[in-house]
Simulated assay, not measured.
Amino acid sequence: MTAVLPPPRPPVAGLLRVQHLTRVENGERLHALLWRAGPDWRMISSAVLGGGIGTRAWVLNAQVSHGYRRTDPERHLAGLARDAGAQGAGVGLMTAADVRAYGHACDDGVEAVVTAGLGVRGWAAAPAESTVAPVRPDTVNMIVALPVALTDAALVNAVATATEAKVQALLEEGYDCSGTPTDAVCVAARTGPGREAHAFSGPRSLWGSRLARAVHGAVRGAASCAP
């Protein structure tokens, strides 16, 4: 069994200062990470709670049981966030991985926090017959924060850039896969009066390249201690 390493801690002055939460469900001790982003953040996410594009004030990445059977994950995540005191609209992610073993990296103002459960993994363009088998909720969850505003198109492009960086990191860590069937992402960009919205976030753009390097480092950190 791979040892769970103590999680690296974001710098005090960083954007992504996550809070570790603990709860007990059905006799099992579970963990979560909560980022209280606050106002003036516009996010894009594939999450079941708060997915799409919009103004969001927090991001919750909650560990759930490997035997998770609830059919209302959106309500479940909203309740966990409410119990933690999160206010306003937010994003809720879930994973069967122990989120205490997260990876954190930054690159010139862009920060990423990643949790990785890689027990079930494969390639996105797998044969059709492989998509019908039930899978455990092992997941790679990525949360990225940029200190600048992005247009809607650039937010979409940022998701693609983050995904490319994730695959590169997994391959470099020795995982022959593009991820897991349930990977999720949340990219947060600053907003507010007087902020110029950047139109590009591909891997060779100024902010996209920084995003890619931050995600790459955080995924490698999380994957290195994944079970």
Rank of each mutant, 00 (worst) to 15 (best):
M1I: 13
M1K: 13
M1Q: 14
T2W: 12
V4S: 14
L5A: 15
L5Y: 08
P6Q: 11
P6K: 11
P7W: 08
P7D: 07
R9D: 08
P11R: 11
P11L: 08
V12Y: 05
G14V: 07
V18F: 13
V18E: 12
T22H: 09
E25K: 11
R29I: 09
H31V: 00
L33C: 06
L34T: 00
W35E: 04
W35Q: 03
W35V: 09
A37Y: 02
P39E: 13
D40L: 10
W41Y: 01
W41D: 00
S45E: 01
S46I: 01
G50A: 07
G51Q: 09
G51K: 08
L60G: 06
N61H: 00
S65P: 02
H66M: 13
G67W: 03
L77E: 00
A78G: 13
A78T: 04
A78Q: 10
G79A: 09
A81I: 05
A81R: 05
R82I: 02
D83Y: 01
A86L: 00
Q87K: 10
G88I: 01
A89Q: 08
G90C: 06
V91C: 02
M94Y: 15
M94N: 05
T95R: 00
A96G: 08
A96M: 05
A96D: 00
V99T: 10
A101K: 03
C106F: 10
D107F: 11
A112H: 01
A112F: 03
T115D: 05
A116D: 03
L118H: 04
L118K: 02
G119T: 09
V120S: 11
A124Q: 15
A126N: 10
A128Y: 13
T131C: 13
T131N: 12
V135F: 14
V135C: 14
R136G: 15
V140A: 06
V140Q: 07
M142G: 00
I143Q: 05
I143E: 00
I143W: 01
A145G: 08
P147V: 06
V148K: 07
V148M: 07
A153W: 10
A153D: 15
L155Q: 15
V156K: 01
N157M: 13
A158S: 15
A160N: 13
A160P: 04
T161P: 11
A162W: 06
A162Q: 07
A162G: 13
T163S: 15
E164D: 14
K166N: 07
K166L: 09
V167A: 14
L170N: 01
L170Y: 02
L170R: 01
L171Y: 09
L171I: 11
E172F: 01
E172P: 01
G174L: 09
G174W: 12
S178T: 15
G179E: 05
G179N: 04
D183I: 03
D183P: 04
A184S: 15
C186R: 00
V187L: 04
R190H: 08
G192M: 05
G194L: 02
G194M: 03
R195G: 00
R195C: 08
R195F: 12
E196R: 14
A197S: 13
A199Y: 02
F200S: 08
F200V: 12
S201K: 05
S201G: 04
R204G: 01
R204W: 12
L206F: 13
L206H: 13
L206Q: 11
L206G: 03
W207Y: 09
G208T: 02
R213Q: 12
G217F: 11
A223T: 12
S224N: 12
S224V: 12
A226N: 14
